[in-house]
Design a binder for these strands. Structure first.
Lengths: 210, 210
DNA sequence: GTCTATAGCTTGATAGAC
DNA sequence: GTCTATCAAGCTATAGAC
């Protein structure tokens, strides 16, 4: 009468990660007990410790896992877009990636925010690293377009942060505050408007204007 | 040899709020015990309950208190700026207010984020209400400037969110992720650059451009 | 303010499924 | 036989009772 099914190690490991993401994103690291995680997976606590030596290591594994998943999901899309010299297409793709990153798995964004507030160094570093990586790539593309004479001279890293912040702030509000700002009906139109503002602000004939 | 000084009610109440903000912002609502708060204030737990009937009520009082403090601190500054027809001055003031809101008391921003993640309805509503209020005021000012012929036609609410997001995202990163992005040496220059991008994107001769 | 009890993280020996 | 899961239990820190 056992409903405890024996599972291959890798599969069980991923089941643990999936359950733990949900719990950590809802209650944070401190607020989640190993007992709860075990119960959610449907196993006993020691099973967790056969896959992860400590609760912290499970947490680190989640961040590692989701970080790589994000790279696999969006990395190619971003890299192709970076090559394009069509500014509108590029920033539309970038904006869509940012919105998808937040909304397609809100629990990961929540988990990272929690971890930053709770002071877990790993995830803070991870977020900083990934964030800086994206900033740099976008910045380099803007630099290229300036050198092609398509945009006015400006601080490219700052411009990258400005665009990303514009989109990310709204997306984060949707995920964290359950704001309705990211209504999917208006989303495409809203993204267009933000791109118009941003590209307008970087167009050549803006240079020197006050 | 008692160092427990008897304090007037109002003063004690504010001492409790001050200590509680620090703790709640560091460990969240769930992660903070009334015992810790009492110890930080230097009184016994029952004293807390003479001022606040529950832990939740203390939390609510903090949000109420800081919310009003913010209004007192920035309300007049914002309202004067709103009246100005100089766009650069207005957005510089608005940007400065946003940055100051985050950086002059990082614990409040952290506390609000925690509370949103933990699902406290009060603070989520409070944040939404204050956020929407600011969005609306800025939106109305942009609308006025469009009607004066100083800016191109656009979705004014969205433009307001775009500007606020641009600044707030960077400020939040500084507060939550201890990012160095908001280096005070570059701050004024960075704000200028963001304003240039934003106002450039809203200038009249951008209309219809792709 | 102390004293006790409970809850949380972790481990070692052991049993059962493939 | 090996890998997976369980049981029983230690230690610590936190919370509740007096």
């Amino acid at each position: 009468m056992s409903n405890k099914i024996r599972m291959p190690g890798q599969e069980r490991r991923e089941a643990i990660i999936a359950a733990a993401i949900t719990l950590f994103s809802q209650k944070g690291f401190r607020g989640t007990t190993t007992r709860e995680i075990a119960a959610a997976v449907g196993v006993s606590e020691p099973v967790l410790y056969q896959h992860f030596t400590t609760k912290s290591e499970l947490y680190a594994a989640i961040i590692e896992y989701k970080s790589m998943e994000g790279e696999a999901k969006f990395g190619h899309l971003l890299d192709s877009a970076l090559e394009s010299d069509d500014d509108h297409t590029f920033f539309a793709t970038l904006g869509t990636i940012i919105i998808r990153w937040y909304t397609e798995d809100p629990s990961y964004a929540r988990l990272l925010l929690y971890s930053a507030l709770e002071g877990h160094e790993l995830s803070t570093l991870c977020y900083e690293r990934q964030g800086k990586h994206l900033h740099r790539k976008v910045s380099e593309r803007i630099r290229r377009r300036i050198e092609q004479g398509a945009m006015r001279e400006t601080d490219t890293l700052l411009a990258a942060r400005a665009f990303i912040g514009m989109i990310a702030h709204t997306a984060q509000a949707a995920v964290v505050f359950h704001s309705r700002l990211l209504d999917s009906a208006n989303l495409a139109k809203d993204l267009e408007s933000m791109i118009d503002i941003f590209l307008g602000g970087l167009s050549r004939n803006q240079k020197g204007k006050k």
